[in-house]
Write a protein that binds this DNA or RNA. Structure first.
Length: 639
RNA sequence: GCCCUUGUAGCUCAGCUGGUAGAGCAAUUGAUUUGUAAUCAAUAGGUCCGCGGUUCGAAUCCGUGCGAGGGCACCA
């Protein structure tokens, strides 16, 4: 005689065991239609699950995340079913729900083509139309293993073998012909999935995510509660594609890549101007914050890298070079060893600490070819690096100062939504535990002081110390890991760094590694995507284009352009034989923030008419006023 | 690195089942002198990614190398 308590507090009495289906029928016809899944005392269950005890039940529809998740999970199953009907001999492996959709990994010799995806979609549609019923069975372990082995599903059998003995093995049947091992829960029938789904791409994926294993074929799909949500999702993807920095970089004439040096950027005039603006801005900020900028060689003897540990730990990613006299040098993949060497020049006193040495160092790393991605993952990049040599007692304060500097700089660049990731001691590490205690406490205190949201990644710190990573959330909600702050008790000792303490004894300093953007190249990619190319005025590589209305006003336009440059506002004058409309279109597409139109009116009043990017409004301003306003704006961000 | 897709003019792309390349934009030249998102016309522009092979004949088919794209793995 179960009594069912619903979320609104109402209770329903049943005289015998009851399923979710019967409960929703009793509540209302419309809910019965929409119900996808339920939770029984907080645990998600199939709607056909039989309840025999008093409990509280919550019903989920496609409006709930739980409902949507089941839709996607079922879509994955039905896809696997469709694939096996269409391509007999294909083995199934795993098919989880992911953000916005699902995938399923298959083992099959022949590759799936995009035509296959269409066929699979069609078959899925048919299965959904048939509304095949779902049935759950619990199988005995041995039976399950031998069954899946017998039908040639060796991956499934392997999965079952890896499931702990005490766990229940549930088999879900979809219709009479297809079944899969699955934890569930599932929809009562395939019709509930609806038609708002789409198979998006096919790719390779390693069995159990390990590159030593064989490669499977993964088919990705997306599915939603209704067509409108699916359309909106596809639209979001399109919008994100429009922001692609590789596309915008071309359109804005910022940079390009070429075959001769994969993963290395050819910076065009405008891209390099943007690059330099960022550096100049940071130079100013770091100078104010007490950093000393230095620069170290890009090619250093192999011996140094052996001493620092990089040769062993990082060697596979390092470029090396052999000189004509057969000495081996490495092109630096990191700046730290060089910086420590520079620190080692000249005796250091405790009075010199904390010593903050910054370096815009260009590093080279031989990244796997498949990892390269525009500016976001390159083989040669410039780090906005700094190393702070300090005593153990100074760690907390320095970490706080660094964190505040980073946040201030992010804010100036338009990123106010920052999350921190804090990683503590890994299993494999160097240094005493009491030193780790101190380092972790110091860093965590700095994290807490920011009052920002943070996650703790247990055991993911570097082998030499704990670290924080700074994650930016961009304008369309994507997260980008940029800055990092690491505490290092290892490298200074390895490379023989020391300072003379008050007591006259030489001691080893602690080193903080920090980067604000991480990689200037990558950060520029992120900036472009965040702003969809429409960078704020101060950081725009080309801030103004002066456009004369006709030949008669060319002299005035040239004069305006020259005055702008003298006031340190970047500018070109467009004297091409095109009409005004054409030029406005061209420079708007190139994302120039301000177009300055010059005609008779402007010459007569010694002014310019401003057309702002994305605004049709015309705004006239005296030239002097313009120069004053905008050069002042530039000055805020540079020396 | 692995799987799949892919590489044609500066850019975006056509080129069906093999018969030595085509458009739009950009460029150049000329006309036009333009008041807020593409003025008109003419001209020029190509080792069809490289190297091998099949074929009477290859941009097209096959092999291989390189690059790019999407994933996977990697991101110390």
């Amino acid at each position: 005689m179960p009594v069912i308590t619903l979320t609104d507090g109402k209770t329903l009495n049943f005289s015998k065991t009851v399923t979710g289906l019967e409960i929703v029928e009793k509540i209302s016809k419309s809910l019965a239609k929409q119900a996808l899944i339920m939770s029984v005392n907080g645990e998600l269950k199939d709607l056909f699950y039989s309840i025999d005890k008093n409990c509280s039940v919550k019903i989920f529809t496609s409006k709930d995340p739980e409902g949507l998740e089941v839709i996607r999970h079922d879509a994955a199953h039905i896809m696997a079913m469709a694939v096996q009907e269409l391509y007999p001999g294909t083995q199934v492996t795993i098919g989880p729900v992911i953000e916005n959709g699902f995938y399923y990994d298959f083992a099959r010799k022949e590759p799936f083509t995009s035509d296959d995806l269409k066929k699979i979609e069609k078959k899925m549609s048919e299965i959904i139309d048939k509304d095949v019923k779902t049935r759950r069975e619990v199988w005995e372990r041995k039976k399950a293993i031998s069954h899946f082995k017998n039908i040639g599903e060796k991956y499934k059998a392997e999965i079952i073998e890896s499931i702990p003995e005490n766990e229940e093995l549930s088999i879900y049947h979809h219709g009479e012909t297809w079944h899969d091992l699955c934890r569930g829960p599932h929809l009562v029938s395939s019709g509930k999935i609806g038609k708002a789904f789409k198979l998006t791409k096919v790719s390779g994926a390693y069995w159990r995510g390990d590159s030593k294993n064989e490669m499977l074929q993964r088919i990705y799909g997306t599915s939603w509660a209704n067509q409108k949500d699916l359309d909106e999702y596809l639209h979001r993807i399109e919008e994100a594609e429009k922001r692609d920095h590789r596309k915008l970089g071309k359109e804005m004439d910022l940079f390009h890549f070429r075959e001769e040096s994969p993963g290395s950027v050819f910076w065009h005039e405008k891209g390099w101007a943007l690059f330099q603006k960022l550096i100049n801005y940071m130079r100013m900020k770091q100078d104010i914050a007490g950093y000393k900028e230095i620069n170290t060689p890009e090619v250093l003897d192999r011996g140094l890298w052996e001493k620092s540990g990089h040769w062993e730990k990082f060697g596979a990613n390092m470029y090396t070079s052999v000189t004509p006299d057969e000495k081996i040098f490495a092109i630096k993949p990191m700046n730290c060893p060089g910086c420590v060497e520079l620190y080692n020049q000249g005796l250091k006193s405790y009075k010199d600490l904390p010593l903050k040495m910054s370096e815009f160092g260009k590093v080279h790393r031989y990244e796997p070819s498949g990892a390269l991605h525009g500016l976001l993952r390159v083989r040669a990049f410039t780090q906005d690096d700094a190393h702070i040599f300090c005593t153990e007692n100074q760690i907390t304060k320095e970490c706080l100062t660094v964190t505040n500097l980073i946040l201030e700089i992010y804010k100036d660049l338009g990123f106010e939504n920052v999350i921190l990731k804090y990683s503590d001691r890994p299993e494999l590490r160097v240094g005493d535990d009491n030193v780790w205690d101190k380092a972790e406490a110091a860093l965590l205190e700095a994290v807490k002081a920011t009052k920002l949201e943070y996650t703790i990644n247990k055991g993911e710190g570097a082998f030499y110390g704990p670290k924080i990573e700074f994650v930016l959330r961009d304008a369309i909600g994507r997260d980008w890991q940029c800055g990092t702050l690491q505490v290092d008790f290892n490298l200074p000792g390895r490379l023989g760094a020391s300072y003379v303490d008050k007591d006259g004894i030489k001691k080893v300093p602690v080193m903080l590694h920090r980067a604000l953007f991480g990689s200037l190249e990558r950060f520029i990619g992120i900036l472009i995507e965040n702003y969809a190319g429409k960078l704020p005025f101060w950081i725009s590589p080309l801030q103004t284009v002066v456009i004369p209305i006709s030949e008669d006003f060319e002299d005035y336009a040239k004069e305006v352009c020259q005055k702008l440059k003298s006031s340190r506002i970047s500018s070109i004058v467009d004297l091409k034989n095109h009409n005004l409309n054409y030029k406005i279109r061209e420079h708007s597409l190139a994302k120039v923030p301000l177009l300055l139109i010059c005609g008779k009116k402007e010459v007569d009043s010694n002014s310019v008419t401003i057309r702002r990017l994305d605004s049709k409004k015309q705004e006239n301003m005296k030239l002097d006023q313009f120069l004053k306003t905008y050069s002042a704006l530039n000055k805020v961000y540079s020396n």
